[in-house]
């Protein structure tokens, strides 16, 4: 897959504050990258540089082959940006509002109308099209801002806290929409504090702290790197009348009792079937064997604290 977003030593300095410090990363086409980090880590500044609305102090970035400084106008055409705050014109009605932004994006009038209708219907706002945006709830405003970002069918979407202030149903709608966008080949950079959302949606996760990239990988990689090998658990229906099988060191036992065994293994694909076979041989009634869930939150806290 070709890289759609590439940054090399991207840096942004505001007076004495280094908001982004030599950030180097790559996002391939169709991928969802989640940018995680505490408040003030530099996520929004990174996204603003990648959307060509802030110029880097040092380093470079290319978005779909366009340089974010030299080809700023082209970059702004192919990206959609959901800003941290919806920032709507509250006295306008949704269709007029979208028409205005569509016109600024150079869309033809018929296309603007059709696309606005399609998106309003998709996000369940079509029935509220006659109301002014000031009458919308917080969640509706956020959805409206997301529609604005998606209006011109951008290849790349930068979403800054897309589900903040949304009720669970609306948040799920937005998450489903993001997941469906991945299916359509769009590339998405998601800034979020919602770790569940990041884990559920992102192919890769980048953790930023004080402007520096401190971790990058798939959720599974990050967990493995930071929390160690996955923990497995076997549970029996009734106690064993003999000791747990050892498998000649293939298992690193963490804890056990009459009914439960917890262990790490470097090769679960061979160790787990072997363990089950042994247990069957000694007549154990195996209730379940599963990997113990580990949250991204543990990884995140380990990184940023």
């Amino acid at each position: 897959m070709p890289a759609l977003i590439e940054t090399l030593g991207l840096t942004k300095q505001f007076d004495t504050l280094t908001a982004v410090d030599h950030l180097t990363l790559t996002v391939v086409e169709g991928e969802i990258l989640a940018l995680l980090g505490p408040n003030g880590a530099g996520k929004t500044t990174t996204v603003r540089m990648l959307s060509s609305i802030l110029k880097p102090t040092a380093g470079s970035a290319r978005v779909a082959g366009y340089d974010v400084v030299r080809d700023a106008r082209a970059v702004r055409h192919i990206v959609g940006h959901l800003t941290e705050f919806p920032g709507l014109y509250l006295r306008m009605r949704p269709l007029d509002y979208l028409d205005f932004f569509g016109e600024l994006q150079g869309m033809a009038r018929a296309d603007r109308r059709a696309r606005a209708q399609e998106l309003l219907q998709h996000f369940d706002l079509w029935d509220a099209r006659a109301r002014r945006l000031g009458e919308y709830s917080k969640g509706m405003r956020q959805k409206m801002a997301l529609i604005r970002a998606m209006l011109h069918n951008p290849r790349i979407l930068f979403l800054d806290e897309p589900t903040s202030a949304m009720d669970p149903h609306s948040a799920k709608q937005v998450r489903d929409a993001i997941a469906s966008l991945r299916g359509s080949g769009r590339t998405i950079v998601l800034c979020t504090h919602n770790l569940y959302e990041a884990e559920a949606l992102a192919d890769h996760i980048a953790v930023i702290r004080r402007g520096k990239l401190i971790a990058l990988g798939t959720p599974a990689q990050l967990k493995c790197d930071l929390l160690g090998l996955p923990l497995w658990q076997v549970r029996l229906a009734r106690p064993l009348d003999q000791p747990w099988p050892s498998l000649n060191g293939a298992l690193q036992v963490q804890s056990f009792d009459d009914l439960t065994l917890r262990y790490h293994t470097r090769a679960p694909e061979t160790a787990n079937p072997l363990l089950l076979r042994r247990l069957q041989e000694i007549g154990a009634a195996v209730l379940e064997l599963h990997e113990m869930p580990r949250s991204l939150e543990e990884v995140y806290l380990k990184l940023v604290l």
Binding site: S51, I53, R73, A74, R76, H77, V79, G80, H81, T83, F85, G87, L88, Y89, F101, L104, Q105, G106, A145, R148, A149
Partner: peptide, 9 residues
Amino acid sequence: SLEPLLDTP
């Protein structure tokens, strides 16, 4: 509401 405008070309 200015930033969405700045995001346009």
